[in-house]
Nucleic acid binder design. Structure first.
Length: 618
RNA sequence: GGCUCCGUAGCUCAGCUGGAUAGAGCAACUGACUUCUAAUCAGUAGGUCGCAGGUUCGAAUCCUGCCGGGGUCACCA
């Protein structure tokens, strides 16, 4: 912040002159003064005491005296223990009102930091999006906005997992049981329809498995594979996957389908294309509701064979090795990791190979300097390995890779389980929060003058704000609990609370426009005694740039969420204590109108960086 | 078991690179709308910061150990 650098440079001059000492910035710690003490900003003098060879109190006194004399911005100080509390002049506050007038411009980076690719959604095409995906998507979208503000050229990508056994399961079940059901003739959203048959497959498989368990063949499997003392029940529960792979008729059909797909069998490919189209239409609808989009979508069906070139290069460089069966491995044991398979004995790719290939394709497409993957923390190890291998291969972007690892979203009763039907569907949840917002409109009169369309739009923004804010206010890396009933609150530490502060300001400014005495009748120059709440607001506004920088470097949108909340809270408080249009003087009125305008802009901008839109009225 | 993340008020979460008496919201209780929108504000109550050591003028924050929870250690993705 400007004040800190200004003050720090004065202090370093002081130490150079008086003590012939070079002081570096981290020995000068400034922070906002705590509520219970007099002053605006506090310098911690403990780190300086050893240079000055005096008591902390004396040191603080000397420095405070010096700053009073040298700086226009400091006009008072007091020392408590080792803390030098500085009071900042009215002059400075008025200056800061000008400096913060355009928050978006004030916080924009002046340097171009290069190109950054962010991958923030990686859905499977066999079922619809759920609450966990929403967290992923919202974090990714917000980071896109934040990093762009921070100075990167952004490319938003997603990778769609559109192939493999899971997709074949829904295809097979559809073929067997759907009787030609389509999104059109059933009215079911495409991704939900496909998801329905994925579930159907699992039910059929379970039924098949259950029946098989009564056969002699099953007894045989139990006898030869069960651990000692293992009950039949426990064994069959554990053995389900083996059953699917070795015994199941349905399993065999799925695998046949996968082979047919890979060999390009017309009928299967056609079905695959048709069903994927349904899913994409469904996803697009959900993405649109969430207000997100992508510059480039990668499909696993295009990329799953990639990466072999990189593996061969690695072999040539001698950083990979070959086993007797012809499989290729990377040895990462020096870095405390394991050996990792990169190519099977038969030359086919694994997941890791694919990600290696995809990384290079992206470099080919965008020449990025950095790449951020927004992916859940269950893949922490995978990305650690991936990044290490890309470094071994000396890929040009290898040092700019980051896994933005986020924690699971739990429900109050524990984690979501598809088996138990506790998975919170994205579309349902969106509809629910908007409905809750709509229910609350009736009790309010702020919106009665709006047309039905405008009202609906406001309601949508309020509901979405509740949902988005709830998910974004928590540090991404932390596992979080989401209570679908309580968590879409519209009061307290929520999105709508912040929107409400904004709407209040807009309402004042609108009144002002409509009134006769729209012209400000006082000058800010004549305003001398700032209220506590006014100074608090200005302090927050001045910190905005640092908040964004921290959000960018920590990869944590929650910093912005908390900033917006604090700003809104301080404004609500200010609004209650002081009149704006009918302020006690023309000067105060002008000052407060201006201040309110800046607060509104900062609220709107910080919410914009979170991907949350403001309503005009609520 | 190895690696890794987490543990702060009844619940959900803040607490920046160590700084003063650890903060919000929800839930509970009390009060404030003839006023620029009460989706608001003010107040009461609620804490051995998982436990034990260590480093420091100073530790919720850094280090070590332990306890508790999650994730991960596939020729799955």
């Amino acid at each position: 912040m400007l004040l800190f650098t200004h003050t720090a440079s004065l202090l370093s001059d002081f130490f150079a002159d008086e003590y012939d000492l070079e002081i570096n910035a981290d020995q000068l710690q400034f922070s906002p003064t705590r509520k219970d003490f007099e002053g605006d900003y506090t310098l911690v003098v403990f780190p300086l005491v050893r240079f000055m060879k005096k008591s902390p109190e004396e040191c603080g006194d000397i420095l405070g005296q010096y700053l009073m004399e040298c700086s226009d911005f400091i006009d008072g100080y007091n020392v408590v223990k080792g803390f030098l509390n500085l009071s900042v002049s009215v002059h400075f506050w008025k200056e800061s009102l000008k400096m913060t007038a355009d928050p978006a411009r004030m916080t924009a980076s002046t340097e171009n930091k290069g190109t950054l690719v962010v991958e923030y959604s990686s859905p499977n095409t066999n079922k619809p999006l759920h609450l966990g995906h929403i967290r992923n998507i919202l974090i990714g979208w917000s980071m896109y906005r934040i990093l762009e503000r921070y100075g990167y050229e952004l490319v938003k990508t997603q990778i769609v997992n559109d192939r493999g056994v899971a997709i074949c399961k829904s295809m097979l079940a559809w073929k067997k049981f759907a009787n030609g059901e389509t999104p059109e003739n059933s009215g079911i959203k495409g991704d939900h329809l496909v998801g329905k048959y994925y579930v159907k497959f699992d039910e059929e498989l379970r039924e098949e498995y259950l029946q098989w368990q009564d056969t002699p063949e099953a007894d045989e499997a139990f006898k030869s594979n069960a651990k000692k003392d293992e009950s039949k029940e426990a064994f069959f529960k554990r053995w389900k996957n083996d059953y699917f792979n070795k015994v199941s008729q349905l399993g065999a059909e799925v695998r046949q389908m996968l082979r047919d797909w890979e060999s390009g069998k017309e009928e299967v490919v056609q079905l695959w294309k048709t069903m994927n189209t349904w899913v994409y239409d469904g996803f697009d609808e959900t993405y649109e509701k969430l207000g997100v989009d992508f510059d480039k979508t990668y499909y696993e069906s295009d990329t799953y064979k990639l990466g072999k070139d990189l593996v061969n290069e690695g072999l040539k460089k001698g950083v990979f090795f070959t086993e007797e069966d012809g499989s290729v491995w990377a040895d990462l044991t020096d870095e405390g990791m394991d050996k990792k398979l990169l190519l099977r004995g038969d030359g086919t790719s694994v997941y890791m190979t694919q990600d290696l290939g995809t990384a290079r394709v992206r470099y080919h497409d965008f020449k990025m300097d950095r790449m951020v993957y927004v992916v859940g923390n269950e893949q922490d190890y995978h990305f650690k390995v991936l990044f290490s291998i890309l470094k071994l291969l000396e890929e040009p972007y290898a040092d700019g890779l980051y896994h933005l690892s986020y924690g699971m979203v739990d429900l109050p009763g524990g984690r979501m389980k598809s088996r138990e039907g506790t998975v919170v569907d994205a579309d349902d949840l969106i509809a629910e929060v908007v409905q809750i917002a709509a229910n609350n409109v009736e009790k309010r009169d702020g919106m009665i003058n709006l047309s039905p369309e405008e009202q609906e739009e406001s309601v949508r923004r309020i509901g979405m704000a509740a949902l988005k804010y709830q998910l974004l206010k928590v540090n991404p890396k932390k596992r979080m609990v989401f209570n679908p009933e309580e968590s879409v609150d519209l009061q307290g530490h929520t999105g709508p609370y912040i929107q409400n502060a904004f709407v209040r300001i807009k309402s004042i400014l609108r009144k002002l426009d409509e009134s006769e005495d729209a012209e400000a009748d006082g000058s800010i120059d004549d305003y001398f005694h700032l209220k506590d709440q006014e100074r608090d607001l200005l302090k927050l506004l001045l910190s905005y740039r640092e908040v964004i920088e921290r959000a960018a470097s920590d990869y944590d949108p929650a910093h912005l969420a908390n900033f917006a909340y604090q700003l809104a809270r301080n404004y609500h408080r200010f609004y209650h204590e002081h009149h704006i249009i009918r302020a006690e003087s023309g000067a105060a009125r002008t000052f407060r109108i201006k201040l309110s305008g800046v607060v509104a802009s900062a609220l709107e901008d910080s919410m914009f960086l979170l991907g949350i839109e403001m309503p005009r009225r609520m």
